[in-house]
Design a binder for these strands. Structure first.
Lengths: 337, 337
DNA sequence: CTGAAAGCGCTAACAC
DNA sequence: GTGTTAGCGCTTTCAG
């Protein structure tokens, strides 16, 4: 209870300054001094006071992951789980603290806002599919280093802001090209939310790949969740006869589409072929299994935290974008290539 | 950038001490001084340095929620989502910080351990269905106030440790009594993990309610997850003919039991009646809808954080236990009472 | 390579 | 009701 650096110094027979150097891995310390300090630390059961350190040094040794989704969404969408897992793994055995901060409701945002401060945090990992977030403005205004999983409007991209993304556009293009190769001609699109840059790019990629086959009346927007997939697919089947394939911007919407298709008495892939996006576990669990675009989501989380650490160290990791990969399963017809 | 209490004092024309008093809501300050300080704070854009405050006062104005589940389990089990939601809501507009700490893997526990310290946290909310957790020992050893959602072995119950639970035993008894009233006689039990005190009590409640009808060969243990429910139910149906009802210690295991029962060509409730425990959303989504024991989980989370705040304030909120309530739906036969 | 000493920004005890 | 001041425990020049 309350053993300080002073006590350690006394026991080790050195000065406070030397103890501090050892504790912080400073280069210029003799081996004997270092050993003595380590012994004294063990002997006294010394524990660092992080507030004193932060006050004196200006560094916090703490980073936060901002969870900007409402908690229902947060827990329901496997993307977040994977991202958080990746961040935690990528953080490795850093001796810093990794804090999760809830910012999914107004109440939570009000509470969290004062925490987004250079005096409390060295940096932030921001997970978001959306373009706008008041807290992000605040983080950037506070000049807090931030690694964003997702795309950002250009005006937010300062020197301390780096993003990590997947190549949504190519992924969507690959999905649609596969459908075309499999013989589909009347291809519907269930896109993501309009305010999600990733979702827009998937739509754009699909549109470009479709070329002359693109038909704007076959496009719907969902919120990535399964029920929005049901609704969109029902509407499509109702109003647009002859649809022989659908590309969904998320696996969960694809799962919804499956339900609507089945409810209509249609068969996958015989009547309607389906391609998803994400390659979540559900893609393997659906019947038939879902052809989908694999995203390395956990890897994204790992990269994000490592980029953040690099930003904090004063380096510039740059923005990073990773490729996707089409995983062909049973919801599309075989293609002889 | 770096405006301190000193600057505020100068602008307000008062002393540092007075500013501090205003900031901390101390009683003995004149209205005029208070107003001047508030004005100066606004004018200078002053922001408190939490490290300096913590260093000087010994209080952190921060509490943590310890997430001790592996992240998969954490996100899959609606119980945690509800608990976290309840904690966040119960925290209200406290100006303190609420931090989520991951402690689901060994790596995470190693990183989190040093954080569980009186110097960094004022208290902890601990969510766990299990009896043992090395970090909990540590929290208690550190004399950190802690509110535990769940039951604890007696030797861990110190003055700063308070638990909040539901009456698992009565809930299970009610479930089984309902089955008996509905005519079931050969009643199987899919209980929770053996190291979960709550699960044990549910089993105990069921056993007592069954009385002479209790048959140990009809008991299986699962891990609360759906696949363990499938496995247990398959095994029961395979080896124990004539089962006409099953009580599951979680809704998710009940959902698993549904699958095993359907796979066997049996019907719910005609051939086998099913009762769950939790009353998660899934209970309403299953076909037929699930009769289950409602737990006020979100409320538990709210209570936990409030009990913690009370502990931190030096009061003793006592342990708290809340009642459950049987919700009758379509997985059991009507009972004319 | 190491010791001495000046703060980091704030709280709280004390005196008025 | 308010000012003054001595730390809280640590890092970091600056000498040597």
């Amino acid at each position: 209870m309350g053993t300080t650096i002073e006590d350690v110094a006394r026991v080790a027979g050195v000065s406070r300054g030397t103890v501090s150097r050892v504790l912080n891995g400073a280069p210029n310390v003799s081996d004997s001094a270092r050993a003595a300090v380590h012994r004294a630390v063990a002997q006294t059961g010394y524990r660092l006071n992080s507030h004193a350190r932060a006050l004196a040094s200006g560094r916090n040794h703490a980073v936060a992951v901002l969870l900007t989704q409402p908690s229902d969404e947060l827990f329901d969408d496997p993307t977040f789980r994977e991202l958080v897992k990746g961040v935690s793994e990528g953080f490795g055995d850093s001796s810093d603290a990794l804090l999760l901060l809830l910012a999914g409701s107004d109440l939570e945002r009000r509470r969290t806002a004062p925490f987004l401060d250079r005096r409390r945090l060295d940096g932030v990992v921001h997970l978001t599919p959306h373009m706008t977030d008041p807290l992000l403005d605040r983080i950037i205004a506070a000049e807090l280093p931030v690694a964003v999983c997702g795309r950002l409007p250009a005006h937010l991209l300062g020197p301390k802001v780096r993003t990590v993304t997947v190549d949504d556009q190519s992924g969507a293009a690959a999905a649609v090209e596969h459908l075309l190769a499999a013989g589909a001609r009347r291809i519907a699109i269930i896109a993501g939310p309009e305010d999600a840059p990733g979702g827009q790019l998937r739509l754009e990629g699909a549109r470009l790949a479709l070329g002359a086959h693109y038909d704007a009346t076959l496009v719907r927007h969902g919120d990535y969740g399964p029920s929005s997939g049901v609704a969109a697919m029902e509407d499509l089947l109702e109003r647009q006869p002859g649809i022989d394939a659908v590309f969904c911007a998320s696996d969960r919407m694809a799962a919804g589409a499956y339900r609507a298709i089945a409810a209509r008495g249609l068969r996958i892939p015989d009547d309607v072929q389906v391609v998803g996006f994400d390659d979540h576990q559900i893609a393997r669990e659906l019947t038939p299994t879902l052809t989908t675009v694999h995203q390395p989501i956990q890897h994204l989380g790992q990269q994000a935290i490592q980029m953040l650490q690099s930003l904090i160290a004063g380096e510039d990791p740059g923005h990073r974008m990773f490729p996707t990969r089409l995983v062909v399963r049973d919801s599309t017809r075989p293609v002889s290539d």
